[in-house]
Amino acid sequence: MSQSRRRLFGFAALFAGPAVWWGTVLLAPYAIMFMISFYSKQFPFMIPDFQFGNYIHLVSDPQYYLVLSRSLKIAFFVSVVAFFLSYPLTYFMVFKVKSPRVRLLLYVATIIPLWVSYLLRAYTWKTILGTEGILNSFLIWIGIVDEPIQLFLYNQFAMVITMAYIFTPFMVMPIYAALEKIPRSLLEASKDLGIGKFGTFFRITLPLTIPGILAGFTFTFCLAAGDFISPQLVGGPYSNMIANVVATQYGIANDWPMGSALSMVMLFIVLGIITLSDKFERIGRLNLG
């Protein structure tokens, strides 16, 4: 009896801290946000209520639909660009770089921007893409254009480029892990069985890295879809993403119920993607056994 009580006490002592932390800073805000999303609004106050007006408004007003679809579209392009940049790079690092030290150096060089402030990195692209920026100066210097091109900055292209750069490490890390796990003997066996380099890549290497690719896509897609800074810094007009609208609802419009409803929608989209990718990844991992 006393022993089981002591065990219970130890259990409580160990987990009480994390439980309180998790409950107050993670679970409670979600619960509050979920609750508020059903409140009604009477400027400048919100009234405790249980009605679906906010959600109906979200669906009926094309403005929200537009922002939501734009967020998802940009997140998709960011993931695709990040993938096509990351996969060849990672493949090169894992299979072509012979020295383990050089490989580690390249890997760290790819990952290390994560330790630099996000804001700083987004600003960097402003100085690259701007009319007085590095890209335009270069193009003028080599004589391709006579005057600065304004097309580079303040549009969705700039957002995709910036976010693809910022989230590339999240694509590289899982793909790197997946590629590194492939036994070299499998590639040799494929060659032994009459399949050349390209065939081996598409039949063996690529299928075996699908779990890593999925994880990378999930990371970049979810991070990009909820991004708030790059639309403001490099996006220009018509580039508002869902996070910007949420911020506006809370801050400027003072419409917390609407902001909460929007946040909930975004939360469920992200949860859906994570669940889906987890399911696929599990299938992929079973195969690797």
Binding site: P183, A189, L208
Partner: peptide, 8 residues
């Protein structure tokens, strides 16, 4: 040596 069967 490790048989190198394709796991997928």
């Amino acid at each position: 040596q490790d048989f190198a069967l394709f796991p997928h």
